[in-house]
Design a protein around this nucleic acid. Structure first.
Lengths: 209, 209
DNA sequence: ACCCGCGCTGTTGTATACAGGAGGGATAAC
DNA sequence: GTTATCCCTCCTGTATACAACAGCGCGGGT
């Protein structure tokens, strides 16, 4: 593992776990010591995190963990609704049979996990969910779209969404994914767009509670 | 001027001017020598350019200038149409009177330049155009939107758009800006959205010729 | 008691040095 | 003549050292 990846993972995990709370400073030396690398790769990692919106740079202060508020959340969800539904439209036209099969498999797996609720199912559902959305972006075939979305989804806000989901939310989310598969298999771009739009708005609704 | 900015400007200008053609390698040492700085800030500049999509990183090859094709252009214009029209919608709701006044002034200046066509007017129009779109993003009040758009507009393709414009295209572009101002001043989000959508699609049409 | 100025400390920005790995070319063996 | 192997060179990734600058506290002066 490269040193820059170590530094990146250290800061990222620190932010997501709350060890670096929003607004706190992240100095290069601290991270370098924590990750066991020199300042050079830490600098690079911090710039990457800045590009992803996890930290801001204040003049003569260095990196500061980005603070989020409700306005930011609304902004992100609106953009996500727009971009993800666009991705779904594209995927409806251009997804390969193999991609459709993989998506179907993921959606069914997620659906099963949500019904069975075995121990530690929440982490598995979260992981499946991420895979599903990534696979969908792959199917959309627009690297630029993927990059734009990555900058939004990486936000700490988005990562913690599932923790707030009720059992009903989880099942609805899985149902959305299944329905999306049907829309894609039918090559119905409008349908796929609508389902994805509902999916994102439902996520926003769940988070607001 | 910081060393990293010097390095950034050197590479960026080199790419835009065609001195670094698409697909060519950009080694850190070359840039360091060309910009008169050390490799450290060059690394940072190259990562920034990668985040903006101007260069790609291939394993054990370093930075390679991104190559564009028609598919990329279509992709970018579709995303721009979506995001810029969304920005226009937001701006219609939240622009301050001062912002509206600045936009109006810029649109009228651009319109005048397009009619008079004094020497070197093309550069001035390009500059005014950039200012207009930046001011509009400011008025939209969504930093995340601005960042997503920046990654698209920075593309070399976009920078050269005006060079292909006919006089009619230029006048229509200025007319779009003026109409957009009217829509914003009327606080008509739908109107603003539609005008912006037309504006971006017109740009794509001009580029395709 | 309050204010101004100076020096110290902490942090970033930049330069340089070193290690590791991949690719290419030359040379030798078959 | 062809091919395989070895070495050299170039380039990146990382570490360390140094310079510059801002913030802060302390001390002296008024």
């Amino acid at each position: 593992m490269r040193a820059v990846d170590k530094a990146y993972a250290t800061v990222r995990d620190g932010i997501l776990s709350g060890r670096y709370p929003g607004g706190s400073r992240v100095t290069e030396q601290d991270v370098a010591a924590a990750a066991g690398v020199s300042r050079t790769p830490v600098r690079e990692a911090l710039r990457r995190l800045h590009a992803e919106g996890l930290v801001d740079f204040t003049a003569n202060l260095g990196a500061v963990v980005t603070v989020w508020n409700d306005t930011d959340a609304d902004e992100i969800f609106e953009l996500r609704a727009m971009l993800e539904s666009y991705g779904a439209r594209r995927a409806a036209c251009s997804a390969t049979p193999e991609q459709l099969a993989r998506l179907r498999r993921l959606a069914e797996e997620q659906h099963r996990e949500c019904r069975e609720r075995g121990p530690g199912f929440l982490e598995r559902v979260g992981s499946i969910n991420q895979h599903f959305h990534r696979e969908l972006q792959e199917a959309a075939g627009s690297p630029r779209l993927s990059r734009a979305l990555a900058a939004l989804i990486e936000a700490p806000l988005m990562m913690k969404t599932f923790e707030k989901y009720t059992p009903d939310d989880l099942e609805r989310s899985a149902a959305h994914h299944l329905e999306l598969c049907s829309a894609l298999e039918a090559r119905d771009a409008e349908w796929a767009d609508a389902v994805m739009r509902a999916h994102v708005h439902a996520a926003r609704g769940a988070m607001k509670r």
